[in-house]
Amino acid sequence: MRSFTYARAGSAADAVGRAGATGMAFVAGGTNLLDLMKADVLRPEGLVDISRLPLDRIEETADGGLRLGALARNADTAYDDRVQTRYPMLSMAILAGASAQLRNMATNGGNLLQRTRCYYFYDTATPCNKREPGSGCGAIGGVNRIHAILGASDRCIAVHPSDLCVALAALDAVVQVTGPEGERSIPFAEFHRLPGDRPEIDTTLQPGDLVTSIDLPAKGFAEHSTYLKIRDRASYAFALVSVAAGLEMDGGTVREARLALGGVAHKPWRDPEAEAALVGKPATPDSFRAAARVLLRDAKGHEHNSFKIDLAERAIVRALTDAAERKGAPRP
């Protein structure tokens, strides 16, 4: 780690005020930030410790949804009865990520701001446009087994590593933010961005913005949903491909569908066309496969990760099948 100052924020407003200075970063769980500071990838000049701000509650919202405090721990969120009952795919997604220890530390807000696990991003001796804009992308033409097949650019093929965010994307969560300009709401689909020619920017947050909560709408697809994560070992590994799937069923027919993918793009990947392709269709592997092909129509593989295209199709079919068969429904 490089030298930095440390201060504990007394309130959200205090935090936002302190973060206005250049080189400042919030620290909450610390699980990703301190990791990257030790690797010399991130070099903040000061840390504002927000971990003790009263933003750790999980509360009902007026519209029947749930407000997840930005500083609620991942584990507490995953094991919350309301989350487990009403948003099982979210609980499953959280528990599929990291380890029990890390879930006890990591906050929901911090999870949204996780940086990519791209090897080149982590290794300061190699080129990476995300870490050092203009230095090039090491992964293109390099080692890219874990990289993006959708929405990448010629500057960056990194993927977002979160599991939680994939479920939040599927659920149409809304991120509540307070910042120098006041408070605002960011629909989840607009929270993360694609790399384009500015891969160093992961989200649409502005300097000084503090995530205060993540709001879940009332609809949680509890009856027909799942989170499927495919990885290189049984646990404690990032997704090669993951799928959050939620269905509303009308007998054997799909009335509404939500489908978000992790491990395939710079952000959790949603595709309205693929979801639309499911509506009114029978819940069969054929219609699921057809929707998967819509979602993957522009997928592009690299030397080591082309298998992800086929794998993603299979994973989508499996996840939708499980969702339709209530595999992910909360235990009675």
């Binding site: 769980g29 610390g30 699980t31 301190l34 410790d49 006890n104 530390m105």
Partner: peptide, 13 residues
Amino acid sequence: GRRINACLTLAAM
């Protein structure tokens, strides 16, 4: 009482 990774938190925190 909760298990965490001591390497990823600052003592000050």
